[in-house]
Amino acid sequence: MIDFQAISPLQRTWLLELGLERAFLARLPQARPASQSAPAQEQAGTPVAPAAVERKLDDASSFVTKPAPARGVASDAMTAARDQALALLRKPGARPVVAAPVEDSLAQKPTVLIQPEKTQDMASLLEQVQACQECGLYTGRAQVVFGSELLVEPDWMIIGEAPGTSDDRSAQPFDGKAGLLLQAMLNSAIPNASIYKTHLVKCRPLGNRPPTQEELAACRAFLDAQIRLVQPRRLLAVGLLAAVALSGRDEDLEALRGQTLAYTDSLGRSLPLVVTYHPASLLLRPQHKANAWRDLSLLRELQAQS
């Protein structure tokens, strides 16, 4: 336990000014009043010598420290003065308490420049997608669903409409019952083909609703850059929104199916494009599976040509 020196009323007043609690000061030993320790001539009314008065004032002022250098905040100066006063009252060798440094919580990350059309690698494109706030989808996502494991010039690039709940959880496209059905269909038609998967938009719409035209437009530059960097040999669009966006033809799905369409990338290359049902639609409408198999047969024919 720390032993404190007795303090005089004057010292007690100074410590109150420095911010010490009254409850703490009440526990400190009090110096004997001057009337009890003064010489007999003082008690008899004899005037105290000026030198004695000065000596008492010097003793009291020895407990008063100079204020800490200003740090821009008044509370910091008061805290430093209080710590210095406590250090004087402690035993010799006791160390004053030093406040821990406060970390700068206002530091901000550097702003990411959104220029997908100028991006030269997939890592930079992914960073831009994660920083994008062009539409409101980013507020409801768990994480960005960018694409499957990167392959160099895959045989096929599968493009869906938007991530679903399972995709949002795993950050992988077509990661659910619909994705399992799609993979089974691809394994049956083109088992040895290399495949890269992604979506038109990279964030899940709440409620798994279809993305709006504004959301599709906000994310289109990322998709075009993704196709340019992946450089697939062929494209497969699953679902009406993907079929219309990639073909540029505003027709229904049945009019776009059963033929080889074309997509022209930003480098001017024309890529074969095949359109089919979204696997989630096939789970709800099994009667379309026969037509979907005809679309997969077209994939097999194109795969055999290379």
Results as ranks from 00 to 15, higher is better:
residue 3 D to A: 14
residue 3 D to N: 13
residue 4 F to P: 02
residue 4 F to H: 08
residue 4 F to L: 10
residue 4 F to A: 08
residue 4 F to T: 07
residue 4 F to K: 05
residue 5 Q to P: 11
residue 5 Q to T: 15
residue 5 Q to D: 15
residue 5 Q to K: 15
residue 5 Q to C: 15
residue 6 A to E: 15
residue 6 A to P: 11
residue 6 A to R: 11
residue 6 A to L: 06
residue 6 A to S: 15
residue 6 A to Q: 14
residue 7 I to E: 05
residue 7 I to Q: 06
residue 7 I to L: 07
residue 7 I to P: 00
residue 7 I to Y: 01
residue 7 I to R: 05
residue 7 I to D: 04
residue 8 S to E: 09
residue 8 S to Y: 04
residue 9 P to Q: 10
residue 9 P to C: 04
residue 9 P to H: 04
residue 9 P to F: 06
residue 9 P to E: 12
residue 9 P to T: 09
residue 9 P to N: 10
residue 10 L to P: 02
residue 10 L to W: 05
residue 10 L to F: 07
residue 10 L to C: 08
residue 11 Q to I: 04
residue 11 Q to G: 03
residue 12 R to D: 03
residue 12 R to V: 03
residue 12 R to P: 00
residue 12 R to T: 06
residue 13 T to P: 01
residue 13 T to A: 15
residue 13 T to S: 15
residue 13 T to C: 12
residue 13 T to L: 15
residue 13 T to Y: 14
residue 14 W to F: 08
residue 14 W to R: 01
residue 15 L to W: 04
residue 15 L to C: 07
residue 15 L to Y: 07
residue 15 L to Q: 03
residue 15 L to F: 10
residue 15 L to M: 12
residue 15 L to H: 02
residue 16 L to Y: 05
residue 17 E to I: 08
residue 17 E to C: 12
residue 17 E to V: 09
residue 17 E to W: 09
residue 18 L to N: 07
residue 18 L to S: 12
residue 18 L to G: 06
residue 18 L to E: 09
residue 19 G to R: 01
residue 19 G to A: 03
residue 19 G to S: 08
residue 19 G to H: 03
residue 20 L to W: 02
residue 20 L to K: 02
residue 20 L to F: 06
residue 20 L to C: 10
residue 20 L to E: 11
residue 21 E to M: 08
residue 21 E to A: 13
residue 21 E to P: 07
residue 21 E to V: 01
residue 21 E to C: 08
residue 22 R to W: 05
residue 22 R to Q: 14
residue 22 R to A: 14
residue 23 A to W: 01
residue 23 A to Y: 00
residue 23 A to R: 05
residue 23 A to D: 11
residue 23 A to T: 09
residue 24 F to A: 15
residue 24 F to D: 14
residue 24 F to H: 10
residue 24 F to Y: 10
residue 25 L to G: 02
residue 25 L to S: 05
residue 25 L to E: 06
residue 25 L to D: 06
residue 25 L to C: 05
residue 25 L to Q: 04
residue 26 A to D: 14
residue 26 A to L: 07
residue 26 A to Q: 10
residue 27 R to W: 05
residue 27 R to S: 13
residue 27 R to Y: 02
residue 28 L to D: 04
residue 28 L to C: 03
residue 28 L to S: 00
residue 29 P to V: 00
residue 29 P to C: 02
residue 29 P to K: 03
residue 29 P to Q: 04
residue 29 P to G: 05
residue 30 Q to F: 00
residue 30 Q to S: 08
residue 30 Q to Y: 01
residue 30 Q to E: 13
residue 31 A to P: 04
residue 31 A to Q: 13
residue 31 A to V: 06
residue 31 A to Y: 00
residue 31 A to S: 13
residue 32 R to A: 15
residue 32 R to T: 10
residue 32 R to S: 13
residue 32 R to F: 04
residue 33 P to T: 01
residue 33 P to N: 05
residue 33 P to E: 08
residue 33 P to Q: 05
residue 33 P to D: 11
residue 34 A to M: 10
residue 34 A to V: 12
residue 35 S to Y: 07
residue 35 S to A: 13
residue 35 S to R: 10
residue 35 S to M: 09
residue 36 Q to I: 10
residue 36 Q to M: 12
residue 36 Q to A: 14
residue 37 S to T: 15
residue 37 S to P: 02
residue 37 S to Y: 02
residue 37 S to G: 13
residue 37 S to M: 12
residue 37 S to L: 13
residue 37 S to A: 12
residue 37 S to N: 11
residue 37 S to D: 14
residue 38 A to I: 00
residue 38 A to H: 01
